[in-house]
Amino acid sequence: MSSDIEIVVEDPTAPETDSPAVASTGTVDVVVSLLLLALAGVLGYDNWRTGMSWDESGPQAGYFPFYLCVILGAASLYGIFAARRNRAAAAETFVTRAQLRRVLQVFVPTLLFCVMMQFLGLYVASFLLTAGFMWLVGRIALWKSLLTAFIFTAAMFVTFDIAFDVIMPKGPLEAAFGY
């Protein structure tokens, strides 16, 4: 067929398959269960203070959340024991070092983007994130990265701020243009 096209996509920065594990699923499971248990404790105490008993018109404001905390706490406790008992599943890799590096490669820029958004406005931050990520992490040519980021950010600005009236946080650059 004439319209047959081959599509090949390479991934030069793919995580190596033989990378050592950073944590096992079992460990993370237990840590998460402990965190949930703590959360259940804190929220439970707050609801107990609000009032968790049953008066003549039915349950008080804290009644439902309090017992949900009890359920959450109990299920988390059970989770700790279940994770310790099922050793085969617990020994599985949660994340390898190479995978974690890649995840942080996207998480840290996202975090920076959120911080920048407060000072520079969403659109400038979005331009910096897109261009920077494509250039530094994706190893795409600088001019391509800058151009793509500019077109994307401009398209977002036109779509949301002008066409759909969805107002985003803005910074000094937008102010200079009178928006």
Binding site: M1, S3, E6, I7, V9, E10, A14, V95, R102, V103
Partner: peptide
Amino acid sequence: LLTMEERLALRGHAAG
């Protein structure tokens, strides 16, 4: 985050 963990290479044919 989950997608980043994987190897994102692929190869195939697209036919009309």
